[in-house]
C-alpha cells in the first residue's frame, strides 16, 4: 500500500498534489456557499484558453535546454507592437488579428534570435538574466509607448497627454475574435470554440515539430548537450531555435490573451506575466529540464481553476480582493519549489 502511495506521489509530484488538494477544498467550499458552477465552468474554459498559449510558449525553451523562459515579455512586446500597429491602421475583425500576427511574428523571430545569442553566452544563468532582460525591455518599451507617433484617437490619451493609453479597448478591432468563432452554449455554459481550437492547433504544431528531425535534435540538445554533440547536433543553434520558437509563441500568446480579455495592456502591464505562466507549467508536472504539452494543459487547467474558484470562496469568508494575493503566493511558491528542488539530470 505504502509503495503504491509512494509511486502515486512520485508520478503526481508535490506541486500538483498540493494544488489539486487546494482545488478540491475550494470546490467543496464553492458547493457549500452555492456558487454558480456553470458560470465558473464557462469562465474557466475562457481563462484556460486565453492563458494556455503563453504557457505553451515555455515548451520550446525547456526542450532546448534554456530552462523556464522568464523573458516571455520579449515576445509579448512584439505581440503588442503588432496589435498597436494593426489598430493604428483602423483594421477590424479577423483582418486586424491577422495583420497583428503578421507584424508580430517576424519581430519575434528577430528578437528571439538576438536573445538566443545572449543566452548562448550565459549558460546556466538563463532564469535570472531572462527575468531582468524581460523587466528592462518592458520598462524600456514604456518610453516607446509614450513617444511613438501613433495617431488613432482610440489609442492615444484623449486630453492633451502624449503617447498611448494604459489600456486600449479592442472592441473595434479583434475583441473576442477567437472566443466567438463557432461559439455555442451548452445550457448556461458558453464554449469559446475558436479559442480552444486555436490553442489545440498550436499544440498540434508544437507536437508535430517535436517529431521532425530538427525537433528531435532540439530535444536532445536540451536533455543532454554532450550526447547531442556526439550526434553531431549544433547545440547553440538549437538553443537559439528554442528561444525563437518560445518568443514567437509568446507573441501569439499575448494576442490570444488580449482578444479574450478585450483590452491591450501596455506599459507595466506585461511586467510579471512570465511568472504565472512558469508556475502553471510547473504545476502541470514539468520541471525546468523536462516538459510536455500535457503539462501545459493540465497545469493551466489546475492553476486557472484554482484562480477561478478560490477568490469568490475566500471573499465569502473575508472581505476584500485577494485574487491577486492568492495568485502571487501560489505562482511564486511553485517557482520557489522548483528552484529549491534537485531535478534529476543535475545542473
Amino acid at each position: 500500500m505504502k509503495n503504491i502511495l509512494d509511486l502515486a506521489y512520485n508520478i503526481i509530484g508535490l506541486p500538483r498534489l498540493i494544488i489539486s488538494i487546494f482545488l478540491l477544498v475550494f470546490l467543496i467550499a464553492a458547493a457549500v456557499v452555492d456558487l454558480s458552477i456553470p458560470m465558473l465552468t464557462g469562465s474557466l474554459l475562457v481563462r484556460v484558453g486565453m492563458n494556455a498559449v503563453l504557457v505553451l510558449a515555455l515548451i520550446p525553451a525547456i526542450k532546448a535546454g534554456t530552462g523556464l523562459n522568464l523573458a516571455l515579455p520579449l515576445g509579448i512586446m512584439c505581440g503588442l507592437v503588432g496589435a498597436v500597429v494593426a489598430i493604428e491602421y483602423k483594421l477590424s475583425g479577423a483582418a486586424s488579428f491577422a495583420v497583428a500576427l503578421a507584424i508580430a511574428v517576424p519581430l519575434a523571430i528577430i528578437v528571439g534570435y538576438l536573445y538566443g545569442l545572449v543566452l548562448n553566452r550565459i549558460k546556466g544563468q538563463e532564469m535570472i538574466v531572462g527575468t531582468y532582460v524581460g523587466f528592462s525591455v518592458v520598462s524600456g518599451m514604456c518610453i516607446f509607448w509614450l513617444l511613438a507617433p501613433f495617431k488613432n484617437p482610440e489609442m492615444v490619451w484623449a486630453y492633451g497627454g502624449t503617447g498611448l493609453r494604459n489600456t486600449i479597448l479592442l472592441h473595434s478591432s479583434f475583441d473576442k475574435i477567437l472566443n466567438d468563432f463557432l461559439g455555442f452554449k451548452i445550457g448556461e455554459i458558453e464554449i469559446p470554440t475558436g479559442l480552444l481550437l486555436f490553442f489545440g492547433l498550436l499544440c498540434f504544431m508544437v507536437w508535430l515539430f517535436g517529431k521532425t528531425r530538427t525537433g528531435n535534435a532540439m530535444h536532445v540538445a536540451g536533455s543532454n548537450p554532450r550526447f547531442a554533440l556526439s550526434c553531431g547536433i549544433n547545440i547553440d543553434k538549437m538553443r537559439i531555435l528554442g528561444t525563437v520558437l518560445s518568443t514567437i509563441l509568446a507573441c501569439i500568446g499575448i494576442l490570444v490573451y488580449s482578444q479574450s480579455y478585450g483590452f491591450l495592456q501596455l506599459y507595466q502591464g506585461p511586467l510579471m506575466m512570465a511568472f504565472p505562466a512558469a508556475a502553471a507549467i510547473l504545476i502541470g508536472g514539468a520541471s525546468p529540464k523536462k516538459a510536455a504539452i500535457s503539462h501545459v494543459i493540465i497545469g493551466t487547467f489546475l492553476f486557472q481553476s484554482l484562480l477561478v474558484v478560490a477568490p469568490p470562496v475566500i471573499n465569502v469568508l473575508v472581505e476584500g480582493s485577494f485574487s491577486e494575493v492568492f495568485r502571487g503566493i501560489v505562482s511564486n511558491g511553485v517557482i520557489l519549489y522548483a528552484l529549491a528542488t534537485k531535478w534529476e539530470g543535475g545542473e
Partner: peptide, 21 residues
C-alpha cells in the same frame, strides 16, 4: 526605472558571460 532594470540586466549578462567563458 528602465535604468534600474537595465543596469541589472547588463551586469548579470556580463557576469554570466565572463563565468561562461
Amino acid at each position: 526605472v528602465f535604468v534600474a532594470y537595465g543596469v541589472i540586466a547588463v551586469a548579470l549578462v556580463l557576469h554570466a558571460w565572463q563565468k561562461h567563458s
